[in-house]
Design a protein around this nucleic acid. Structure first.
Lengths: 338, 338
DNA sequence: CTGAAAGCGCTTACAG
DNA sequence: CTGAAAGCGCTTACAG
């Protein structure tokens, strides 16, 4: 910048004013500065700039995902990037692998790089430590699940509502025995989806049968086994609701293995790539991860811009994509009462 | 840091030495410093630190992908993150959408944040502008395709070799009429894959028939149409080679639409999620995106650590995953000579 | 081994 | 509107 000032024949302060578009500068001087910048190929250092600025903003955001390579999160990432880009912001991203220690290391490393804000998919741990970052001026927003032991803006999908819609859809198609296959309940989304199932059954006047509810399924294999077991009870379910991608895949494998893919209905949470190419194609409850990312970024920028009101929770709707698996071909009579 | 010095009763310089682990400091003083750091909850500013350091390193890396939400690239991202993490580094990522202007804006924005290095998936444009960044001390590495008008370290998949292996596999299964469906040839990987097809045919003594080669396919729809056309020639192919995911999906749709999914063999480039659940399951040429990311990060860190030798090109092998689609069920007699 | 001082590249009151 | 000067939070010769 010193060189630019020299070439342009103005003071350092003037160059700074021109380049940061702050204060009034005579157009002729501004032109000289721009010419010098072009000539020298000068680029202002964001780091030095933010160090001295009153607002200390760096125009960068940190994002902690469970895994940047997970397609759901990488779509959230994209949504955040889109909104950040409108403001000239850049995104730092890292994977916590749902490890609270790693999550904290990442938050620390981002804060040390003076990010303006942090968007986090909170791990199973405790997020209270983030109140210190907030005090130090780092804005916060959460995504996919709420933080624990800390208030904060959060963007969620309507997990319970999405499941409820699926249950109603299956009920309308004549199903009365709807099994629920879910992940470990310590995971917020897993618990919410189970809650949605229970509430929907109650609203429809259906009894909840313990034999038709299986949770704690963390892998495709576990899900496959659970589906086989749940279909092996005295009065088996006519429809399956799977609360997560891996569980859905396990269920598909199990149904195929038993030759029941056209006999037992299936609705899965989260869309599957190629889900429409399978036989039968898979009915799903789809989230909108890109919009989740955009929304979280907007909330975060409001905080960065000074909003200091109470924490907000935004719940985005899910979309039921009805495909073949919830319209099993052969006619079926109503199952006997439980 | 000033506060820490005050509490610890030492000079600023000593605190800096302890925290940056540079220079010799008496253990007792170091202990005092650490106590003060704990007490105050102090965290060193990476920005201020790097501004004054001799090496100017910030411990952050910029990555320009075509799209952070593309599963291939998000896996590359994960590989880069893993290697960066070993060194305490952080990753900034952005999407160019294959737009040279956006690519350059991102490279600029990263450089203004003083990243130590840049890993890029070069867009179709010209990367010569990056030589300026390199002169300013930013290390460079490229991924998936080589930069244009610039020398640089690059990590590629063995595109031609992977296709060659697939052609040999189909040939061994008796196929003599193997169609190639590819993307726009201005895309490096598309051109390489077509080259692999041609060379493999030549090596096997098969003539290349223009009617069996279709390129320029940028969408599922275009691919579907092209497959229908290529199957409609007087002597149709008995096998299809698709050079990219969207093309593969278009081919699957076309074959199903025609009821030929068990009659015409198919091998696609890049694995498909659920590719093993389709009927028939899809034989693919799989890349290893995470390893591509790790390798690029390693090359980049070598440059950051001072390696100044010639540009290196590392080509990673692909893996042929033989599944049902290249073993069509019904026996088939050798097709008539061309 | 330790401290006082200069300075990285910038912004911002403070005068004029 | 413009410039000289102080200072953001740190590191690093330079003395001692």
């Amino acid at each position: 910048m010193k060189d630019v000032a020299g070439v342009a024949g103005v003071s350092l302060a003037t160059v700074s004013r021109v380049l940061s578009e702050s204060g009034e500068v005579r157009p002729e001087l501004a032109a000289k500065v721009h010419t010098a910048v072009e000539l020298l190929g000068y680029r202002r250092s964001v780091m030095a700039s933010s160090l001295r600025r009153a607002d200390r903003l760096t125009g960068s955001l940190g994002v902690v995902f469970e895994d940047v390579a997970n397609p759901f999160f990488s779509s959230v990432h994209r949504g955040i990037e889109e909104v950040a880009r409108e403001r000239g912001g850049l995104v730092l991203a890292g994977s916590s692998d749902d490890d609270p220690v790693r999550e904290r290391e990442l938050a620390d490393a981002f804060a040390a790089r003076a990010v303006d804000g942090l968007i986090m998919v909170p791990s199973a741990g405790d997020q209270a430590y983030l109140s210190r970052e907030r005090e130090m001026g780092v804005a916060l927003a959460f995504v996919d699940r709420p933080p624990r032991f800390l208030e904060g803006d959060v963007v969620l999908s309507d997990n319970a509502g999405g499941i409820g819609e699926a249950v109603a859809h299956l009920h309308a198609a004549g199903h009365r025995r709807i099994a629920f296959l879910g992940d470990r309940l310590r995971i917020y989304t897993a618990a919410e989806r189970l809650r949605g199932h229970r509430e929907a059954l109650r609203e429809l006047g259906l009894a909840e049968e313990p034999a038709l509810v299986r949770t704690g399924l963390a892998s495709t294999e576990a899900a496959e086994t659970a589906v086989r077991e749940v279909l092996d009870v005295p009065v088996p379910p006519t429809a399956l609701l799977t609360s997560q991608n891996l569980v859905t895949i396990g269920a598909i494998r199990a149904l195929r293995g038993l030759g029941l893919q056209h006999a037992v209905a299936l609705v899965g949470f989260d869309d599957l790539a190629l889900g429409d190419m399978l036989d039968p194609s898979v009915t799903v409850i789809a989230q909108d991860p890109t919009e989740i990312g955009r929304t979280a970024a907007r909330l975060l920028f409001e905080r960065i811009d000074g909003y200091a009101g109470p924490a907000r929770t935004i719940t985005l709707p899910t979309e039921l994509r009805v495909r073949g698996s919830s319209h099993p071909g052969p006619a079926r009579e109503a199952p006997p009462p439980a």
